[in-house]
Simulated assay, not measured.
Amino acid sequence: MVRGLVWLVLFGTASVAFYRVNDRIVWDVCRRERRPYPPDWTRSVYWQWRTMAGSWYGDAKHAGLLWPKVAATAAILMAGICPVLTGILEAMSG
C-alpha cells in the first residue's frame, strides 16, 4: 500500500516536471516564431501534435532545455513502468 502511494507521488512529480519543461519549450517556440503564447496549449491539437513530433527535441535543444526534457521524459517513463515491474517481480517471488 505504502509502496503504491510512493509510486503515485513519484509519477505525479514526474508529470508536473514533464508539463513544466514542455510549457517552457512552448513559450520559447512562441517567442521565436512571434506567436501568441496560448495558456491552454495542452488542449490544442496543434501543440499536442508538435510535442509528439521528432523535432520537439530540436526545439528543446534550441530553448536550452534538452537535458531537462530528456530527464523529465525518463522520469515519467520510469515512474510508469517501474511499479508494474516491481509488482510482477513480487508476484513471481511468491
Results as ranks from 00 to 15, higher is better:
Arg3Leu: 11
Arg3Trp: 08
Gly4Ala: 09
Gly4Phe: 10
Gly4Ile: 03
Leu5Trp: 07
Val6Asn: 04
Leu8Phe: 15
Leu8Pro: 02
Val9Trp: 13
Val9His: 04
Leu10Thr: 04
Gly12Trp: 15
Ala14Cys: 10
Ala17Met: 12
Ala17His: 08
Phe18Tyr: 15
Tyr19Lys: 01
Arg20Pro: 00
Arg24Gln: 15
Ile25Pro: 00
Val26Ser: 02
Val26Gln: 01
Asp28Leu: 00
Val29Asp: 02
Arg31His: 13
Arg31Glu: 14
Arg32Val: 08
Glu33Ile: 00
Arg34Asn: 12
Arg35Met: 14
Tyr37Phe: 13
Pro39Arg: 07
Thr42Val: 10
Thr42Met: 11
Thr42Ala: 09
Thr42Gly: 06
Arg43Trp: 10
Ser44Phe: 11
Val45Trp: 15
Tyr46Lys: 09
Trp47Tyr: 14
Trp47Met: 05
Gln48Ser: 12
Trp49Tyr: 10
Arg50Trp: 09
Met52Lys: 11
Met52Gly: 10
Gly54Ser: 13
Ser55Cys: 06
Ser55Gln: 12
Trp56Thr: 06
Trp56Cys: 07
Trp56Leu: 08
Tyr57Lys: 12
Tyr57Gln: 13
Gly58Glu: 10
Ala60Gln: 01
Lys61Gln: 14
Lys61Asp: 13
Lys61Ala: 15
Ala63Asp: 04
Gly64Arg: 08
Leu65Tyr: 06
Leu66Phe: 15
Leu66Gln: 05
Trp67Pro: 00
Trp67Asn: 01
Pro68Gln: 12
Pro68Asp: 13
Lys69Ile: 00
Ala71Ile: 07
Ile76His: 03
Met78Trp: 15
Ala79Gly: 14
Ala79Arg: 07
Ala79His: 09
Gly80Asn: 07
Gly80Ile: 06
Ile81Gln: 08
Ile81Asn: 05
Cys82His: 12
Val84Ile: 14
Leu85Cys: 05
Leu85Val: 12
Gly87Pro: 02
Gly87Ser: 08
